[in-house]
Design a binder for these strands. Structure first.
Lengths: 190, 190, 190, 190
DNA sequence: GATGAATGAGTGTTCATTCAT
DNA sequence: CATGAATGAACACTCATTCAT
């Protein structure tokens, strides 16, 4: 029997990300993705149950890579502020180097497909970050408020600022990132 | 007295919003919208150039309503912090009462359709809010940073926190909104 | 508005019957039928909910025509044997003149599509024939047995004998039909 | 001892019959049959030239089994009527015990696949039955008519009556079978 | 002999849009 | 202004079959 060609799966994923970035979610049909990946439409259905599965799997895969990148130089022993700052810089770095991935996840998150993602699986990836926040609360460094609120200020602004459509005026250089981080920290610090 | 045609146009917009909320952007076809609005598909093309135009127009209309609601009791003479706080409460109130509108704009903003919107037109609506921030900078009340950064902390967290998918743990009652606003203000205040 | 073109619907039905006869049920795809009828595949979905509906509707329509043809010169006052004989000849005549219709119904009856037909609607068409049999039983002319049995001998052999595949040796001329009818009558007569 | 491959071939045939009965001819794809038989689709092409061949072979095999069952206790020395009656009971018994086989052949016979069967091969199986009819004609016990006509009355009604769709009102118990057989005999007897 | 991977061609169906009325 | 009929092109997906192992 013929062996599964890992290159093919890689090509499908890359084609998916590329197309979604270029022409958007709606217009990215299975046959266009297949053509871009140089495989038959039928081949996609060997690797994925259906279109939904293809998109969801791609999303989760990207989120995992994101998590790895961000938590790469994660050092619990550092001061909490430094940890958070590191995350900011890692995140902006990742997004800068993987603009396509970022744009894919943004489009995906706000599409109805995102309802199909097992959120626990995604949350698990970023669990260590949440843990740090909780430790910060205990140590009376961070405000004792619902952690969704904390995340909305210390985490999501990265997404907002990285979104060219929303923040065209924000130049993503180190100095500006540090400035923005200071606001984030001011928001959550006690 | 309203003309019959205005009722039709209203019906079309309502149907669009309703359908996009119920079945998502992708599945909301022109003929389904027409059926929901009790008009012929052809009728939609009397009022809108094409599907794109329908969606973009609907988006802008909702943004305008949002702007009106938020700026309704806008009083420049009040302290800046109070103005900002008012905006927070007005916004949460509007979203609460018009959940469908909010969800539509969220889906829309992150879809490729949003590239077709004349951003100036939308920005114009919320211009007074920006003006206030600039005044705050001048008066040394607010940090003197790029206003995209300010908006990312004083404005966008409202969206993040209102998004059930992102912040399921955030209960939108007055006390929690105030708590969250305090973080926002801490972020931007000097 | 454009008016429904009755010719189109007629063309679709004719194309369906023709194709099913030529290439069989399985191979008769919607797009092939559309091409044969010189309409767009989408047009078929204006007249019929789906492929199933197209086939079932076509079947019922043919059955109705069959019923009309057979019961055309139906005269209750005639002797029962003559009535039955008339039906035999009408039926063979109809099948001879509408071979395509007959073949379609035969293919259809034994396909899983036939489960979707409201049998009552079809039975209703041939109800008068059953009534005659019941009258024959009462008058002690016909054997008093379950009417499914009667029909299996006085009615279905027409189908068997008309089926070229099953009875290639049966030449459908008047004399042979009369001979066969005599067997049918011998079977059910008391 | 059976070879492994024979088990596979048997499994494929059983899967084919089962699937055709469950989901019909059209929906029974090669890969579904393969899955049901727990083999690879490619394996089917080792034993059969193509799908057509698979179905035709399955049909012929069932017909052979049918023939064996029916002619099992075939005794030429018995009176012709008794022979025919035996066939009726054997047939109903076989159909009752192998409903799936019967339904498969019914679906198959009226599908375009049946054109691909070498009818001679099938006829050969039931040749002894025909011989008996011819002997009956010679002995002036049976009407001297075309043997397709005879078969249409002494043989095919078994199929009609066994078909639940056509004769839902016919309960297949010994008494009813005998009643029906009497009609068949009355039809062909001189 | 047996397999799962791979595919081009096809499936039934819906799409955004235009047409004739 | 308003309509339902009509459509070619596209959709997600499956098909029968072949290939490399």
């Amino acid at each position: 029997m013929r062996y599964k060609d890992e290159n093919k799966q890689e090509a499908i994923i890359n084609a998916t990300v590329k197309l979604v970035n270029e022409i958007g979610f709606v217009a990215s049909s299975v046959s266009k993705i297949a053509k871009e990946a140089n495989v038959s439409p039928a081949t996609i259905y060997i690797y994925y149950k259906n279109k939904e599965d293809l998109l969801v799997s791609t999303y989760i895969r990207i989120k995992q890579k994101m998590g790895e990148a961000v938590l790469k130089n994660f050092d619990e022993s550092m001061p909490i502020r430094d940890i958070a700052k590191n995350i900011w810089f890692s995140m902006f770095d990742f997004i800068d180097k993987n603009r396509e991935y970022f744009q894919f996840t943004e489009q995906f998150s706000y599409s109805p497909y995102s309802d199909l993602v097992d959120m626990d699986e995604v949350e698990k990836i970023f669990r260590p970050v949440i843990e740090i926040l909780l430790k910060g609360i205990e140590q009376k460094i961070i405000k004792n408020v619902n952690h969704d609120i904390l995340v909305a200020f210390i985490f999501y602004p990265i997404m907002t600022l990285s979104n060219a459509r929303l923040c065209s005026g924000f130049n993503k250089n180190d100095s500006n990132i540090e400035t923005a981080f200071n606001l984030a920290w001011d928001a959550i610090k006690l």
